[in-house]
Design a protein around this nucleic acid. Structure first.
Length: 281
DNA sequence: ATGGTAGATCCTCTA
């Protein structure tokens, strides 16, 4: 492929849909509103043979990298452009469908393509002590393994995107109440440290925070456990969904958005999509 | 201090 044929703009969306089959009309709405080139999904909750592949191909996404299982987890990358080197990765010795990656062409990358990683980090249960809560121990081990993999197998010169539901809100402004949330899983110091180590592995750039200052509250998730539109009025949110890039793509960052409206699309996912625009400098 | 809701599914688990 000559460089003239490569796409000069790449819009990448990520969304924890909490059941892709239930959220199909929402996906159509997101596509109409945002026109992404690549869509990363988490919590698809469906085996690959039952994934709504035909409908999404009809809507413009014939290239699909799927890693799904029954009832739980499940990730997918959908693309307008061909996907190469699709990898389904397992962590902590579990085939639990939390990571899929693929390469997509992009003129703004020094390598002519971007390696996109779609990740769903374990939530970690309720008790923030790995000694008594195996789910939290699993979450920390998972973050550690992903960190070690990027350290060993990739470098900061590789043009990459790491996006998905990381289930960690790292900054004080990523939660509605930093002090209260510091004892609540998603915002405990030990998780934040593990996420920071993963971020350091290949010097990931937190793209959202290059557009929204770290001092400003920014959320992508609001609990279901509130009545009606209380999620909106009380705004007790967290930033659990992230879109990270490596340095070779830094100059291509052209825009970022949390599609907050989508949290109100009935029946909603508890997560809102995030969208990054990369434009060839 | 507690429980609040949602989704898939085997009637409980995970979030």
């Amino acid at each position: 492929m000559s460089s003239a044929a490569l796409p000069s703009v790449l819009r990448i969306a990520s969304w924890n849909v909490n059941s892709v089959r239930l959220r199909l009309p929402h996906l159509e709405r997101l596509i109409r509103a945002q026109d992404p080139d690549v869509i990363c999904l988490q919590e698809t909750k469906v085996i690959d043979v039952l994934f709504p592949a035909g409908v999404l191909a009809d809507w413009g996404y014939p290239y699909q990298a799927l890693s799904g299982m029954k009832s739980y987890n499940g990730v997918a990358i959908l693309s307008r452009w061909p996907l190469e080197d699709v990898q389904r990765v397992s962590w902590c010795g579990r085939d639990d469908c939390r990571h899929v990656s693929a390469r997509v062409a992009f003129a703004g990358s020094p390598q002519g393509s971007v390696e996109v990683h779609c990740l769903y980090v374990p939530a970690g249960g309720d008790i923030p002590d790995p000694e008594v809560n195996p789910k939290f121990a699993h979450k920390l081990a998972f973050l550690r393994e992903v960190e070690q993999w990027f350290l060993a197998c990739r470098g900061y010169h590789d043009a990459m995107v790491l996006t998905g539901d990381f289930n960690v809100a790292p900054l004080p402004s990523d939660v509605w109440d930093h002090k209260k949330m510091s004892r609540v899983i998603t915002h405990t110091p030990v998780e934040i440290l593990h996420l920071q180590r993963l971020q350091d592995s290949v010097r990931w750039i937190d793209s959202a925070r290059t557009f929204v200052p770290p001092s400003e509250p920014l959320f992508t998730w609001w609990s279901y456990r509130q009545q009606g539109d209380a999620w909106q009025t009380s705004n007790r949110g967290r930033r659990l969904d992230h879109l990270w890039i490596t340095e070779p793509l830094a100059a291509a960052q052209a825009g970022f958005e949390v599609v907050r409206d989508a949290r109100g699309w009935e029946p909603p996912s508890d997560h809102a999509p995030v969208v990054l625009t990369l434009r060839t400098p």
